[in-house]
Design a protein around this nucleic acid. Structure first.
Lengths: 191, 191, 191, 191
DNA sequence: TATGAATGAGATTTCATTCAT
DNA sequence: AATGAATGAAATCTCATTCAT
C-alpha cells in the first residue's frame, strides 16, 4: 500500500536523522512529519536505537545496490573502480538518498548493542569487498598498476569519506572537489 | 596557580567529549571528573556549547602548533608536505592530544552561534593555508610535480580526514593504514 | 470524563498561582497538588508561561461571564453600572473565583510572547466596553448625570482595581471598604 | 563621597527591581550595573530580601517626603487633599523616583520576615494618616463636604493605586487619565 | 571594605517509553 | 494496528550565598 504507516515512519526518520542528527530528532518530530500517532514508533520499531539502525540499514542497502548497479557493466577493472567512485560520490549528494543519515553524528560507532554495530559493520565491509574485487580484476586485466588491493581499497575509500565530509559539512569545499578527486584516483591507479 | 579549577574543567571536558561525544557528556560527568562543583561550569564557560567550543579551539590550537612545529625545519616543499601529513596523522592518534573532540559528533557544524562556527572555520582554514604554501614551495623548488596547490591541498586533507576516521571509528582499518597513506601521498606528488 | 487530568492541572495551577504567585509556584507543587506526573504539565500546556496564561484566561472568562450575568437584568443604565461594580467586587472576594491569579505579581504585563499579552488585553478591554455601554445607556435614559463614558469607565475601574488591592493585599483595609466604594460610585454618577 | 559603593548598589537595585521585578533582578545584574564586586551585596545588605526592603524603604521615604513637601503650604483642607493627590500621581510617573519598585510584583506582601513587612506597612500607614488629617481639616474649615475621613481616605488612595496601575501597567490608559482622576476627586469632596 | 571563584540546591524542560483504550 | 495521554528520570542552567584572599 502507499499509505503504509510503518514505511512513512521510516522515511520521516531518515529525513530527520539526516537533517538534524540523532539526538535532535525526537519521536514527536518523526511522528508529526509522518502524520501518524506517536505510539506507533515503539510499536513498530521497538526503540530509538533500533529505528536509527533501521534507517541506517535502509540507506546502506540502497547505497550498496547503487554501487552494484553502477559497476555491473564495467568493461575493465579500472573502469569498474572509476564507476565505483563516481557512484559513491553521486550517491552522497543525491537529494533523495538520505546519505546524511550515515554521515551525521556517530551513534553507529556508539551503538550499545553489539549485534547492531556488527550488522552495520558487515554491510560496510561489503562495500570494501566490492572495491577490492575491482582492483584485483584491474591488476589482472592490466588496466591498473600492480597494487595491493586491500591497502588501495582502504585508501580510496578513505579519500571518498574525507572528500564527502569536506563537501557536505564544511564551507570551504571547492565546487570541483569531486571531479578533482576522481582525476586523482584515476591518475594514481591507471596502468 | 597550579590547581586551577577552570583548567581542570576544560581538561575534563576534552577528555569526555572525545570519549563519549557531545550529548553523552553531561555536566555531572564533567564536574565529577574535574572534581569541582556543578555550577562552576556555567560560571566559567557560560553554557555547554561554549565549553564545547573552548575545548575544540584548545585542541585545534595545539594541532596547529604541532603542524607548524613539524614543518618548521623542512628543507624542501616536498619534505614539508610529508612532515605536514605525518604530523597530522601522528597528532590524530596521540593519546594526549584529545583529537577525538574534533572527530566525534557534529556539533561544530551544528553550532547555533554563527560566530562560534566561524571561529572554528577560520582555524581550520589556517590548516589548509599551511599545506597550500608548502605545495607552492615544492612546485617552485622542483621537489613536487606541477599541481594546483589549492586543489591538491583539499584532496590531501580529505585523505587525512578519511584515513583518520577509518582508523579511529571503524573496526576494519589495517594497522599499516597510516604508513600506506603517507606512501600514497608521496607517490602522487613527488617530482 | 470526570477525572480529567488536564483540568486538574489547570485547577491546581489557578489555586497555587493565586496563593503563592508566579515564581513561588513550581511545577512540582502543581503536579503534586493535581496528583499527576510532572511531565504532564509540559505535555498539555507546553511551558509554564502558557499554563499561567491558560489560568489567567480561564479566570477572566468566568469573570466576564459573571459580569454579563449580573448586568443582564438591569432596568436602567445606573442600575447596570451598580450591578457591574457589585459583581466586580463580589467576584474579587469569591473564594472559588481564583481572582488572585489576576492580582498577584505582574507576569501578565511581563509576558514575553506578544500574542499572549494581547489575548489578555483584549479580554480586559471587553470589561471596559461593557461598563462604557452601561454608562452611555444611563446618560441616555437619564439615570446617570451627563459624563464622558470612556473617561468615567476608566476612573470607576481604576477605583475597583485599587479597592480590590487594598482589600486583598494590605492589612489596613476597613471591613466596609467595598460598601463605601459602591456608595461613592453611586453618589458620583447618579442623576 | 560620590563613588560610595554601598549607595551605588542601592541605586542599581532600585533601577533593576523597578524595571525587571524581583525575581528577574539578580545579584549579578545589580553588581554589574553598579560596577562593583558581586560579593559586596551580601556584605552590605545581608540577603536579597533585605536589599529589596532597603530599596522599597528608600523609595517610600522619598515618596513620603515628597507628599509632605507638597502639602506643606496648603491653605485649606481641600487644597491640601488636591496637592496630596497631585503629588502622589506626579511621583508615580517621575522618571527618577523609582516608583515601579513599589508597583512591580508583590514580594512586599509575600515577605517572609514579619518585621520587614511591618516596617513597610507602618510607612504606608503614614501616607494614609496624612490624607486623613487633610480631610479632617477640610471638613472643619468648610472647604470639604462632611465625610468620614478614614473611609474617604481609603477610597481616594484606592483610586490613586488603581489609576496608577492602569497608567503604568496597561496599554489602554487614556493620556488624560490622571487629570480626569483629579477632577473626579475634586468634584466628590469639594464643599 | 572589597573581590570574584566556588558551591549546590532547585527550577524548568525534554523525551523515550509505557499503557489503557 | 493505531492512538495519544501519562510517566518520571535526567539534562541544562540559574542564582543566592559563602568564603578565601
Amino acid at each position: 500500500m502507499n499509505t503504509n504507516k510503518k514505511d512513512a515512519l521510516l522515511q520521516a526518520a531518515k529525513d530527520l536523522f539526516g537533517e538534524y542528527g540523532y539526538v535532535e530528532t525526537t519521536f514527536k518530530k518523526i511522528s508529526e512529519r509522518a502524520g501518524v500517532a506517536l505510539g506507533l514508533l515503539n510499536h513498530h520499531y521497538g526503540n530509538k536505537e533500533k529505528l536509527f539502525l533501521a534507517a541506517g540499514i535502509d540507506v546502506l542497502q540502497h547505497f550498496l545496490a547503487s554501487l552494484q548497479d553502477a559497476i555491473a557493466g564495467a568493461n575493465s577493472g579500472y573502469d569498474g573502480v572509476m564507476r565505483f567512485c563516481r557512484a559513491y560520490l553521486d550517491f552522497s549528494v543525491d537529494k533523495n538518498s538520505n546519505w546524511l543519515v550515515l554521515v551525521r553524528c556517530s551513534p553507529y560507532s556508539d551503538m550499545k548493542t553489539k549485534t547492531d554495530r556488527d550488522q552495520m559493520d558487515s554491510m560496510f565491509s561489503q562495500v570494501y569487498r566490492e572495491l577490492e574485487l575491482l582492483l584485483d580484476r584491474g591488476v589482472r586485466d592490466g588496466s591498473i598498476i600492480p597494487v595491493n588491493s586491500r591497502t588501495t581499497a582502504q585508501i580510496i575509500i578513505s579519500l571518498m569519506v574525507g572528500a564527502n565530509r569536506t563537501k557536505v559539512l564544511t564551507p570551504y569545499a571547492e565546487p570541483t572537489l569531486y571531479d578533482n578527486v576522481l582525476h586523482f584516483v584515476s591518475r594514481s591507479i591507471k596502468a
